[in-house]
């Protein structure tokens, strides 16, 4: 089985990071995995997305045309990728940042006001991880043990506080 995830939004929202945590989690679960960022000349604010493919067999092209799961953190991303999502796939929308609704009715859609929730939780930069938690829950791929290990791979041991904050944000997303 192969699942293709597309995280899309602005640069600086942490989408590449949540993609990396997902990829590491899959690696720890002994899956085949690829992680591919978009890259451009701008460092902040431009569109950024990241494709993660998780599979039971070696990954072919690391490029995603039709994702199974789309996490959208701004309107341009939803506009651009909504119709690309596979029939029966999933779209997770940061409803703090995207006012409109998803037009399709052949995909499951979850609206999470992640940016507002992150601000309320005291970690305004961790909306990405709240959406990530929601995505793990709804795709049925939550595994606390491998999640912890993956976060440990992506956050330096010197930043224990960041580890806790990220894990907490994922839990907030899972509870949503």
């Amino acid at each position: 089985m192969t699942t293709e995830y597309l995280f899309a939004g602005f640069g600086g929202q942490g989408l590449l990071f949540s993609g990396k945590v997902l990829a590491y989690k899959a690696l720890i679960e002994d899956k085949f995995v690829s992680w591919l960022p978009s890259y451009g000349p701008e460092m902040r604010g431009g569109t950024a997305n990241c494709s993660v493919i998780i599979s039971d067999s070696p990954v072919g092209a690391p490029i995603i045309t039709n994702p199974d799961v789309l996490v959208a953190m701004n309107l341009p991303s939803l506009d651009k990728y909504e119709n690309a999502v596979k029939k029966g796939g999933m779209i997770i929308v940061d409803s703090s940042l995207i006012e409109r609704k998803v037009k399709r009715d052949d995909v499951s859609v979850f609206y999470v006001p992640a940016t507002d929730m992150a601000s309320k939780s005291g970690s305004p930069t961790l909306a990405n991880m709240i959406l990530f938690g929601k995505m793990l829950k709804e795709t049925g791929t939550l595994n606390e043990e491998t999640l912890n290990a993956a976060l440990g791979k992506c956050i330096s041991a010197r930043h224990k506080d960041m580890f806790d904050l990220n894990l907490n944000a994922v839990k907030i997303g899972c509870a949503e």
């Binding site: 992680w35 591919l36 890259y39």
Partner: peptide
């Protein structure tokens, strides 16, 4: 190429 350079894999 840009892709093989930028992508992450195990």
């Amino acid at each position: 190429d840009g892709t093989t350079g930028q992508m992450m894999e195990p």
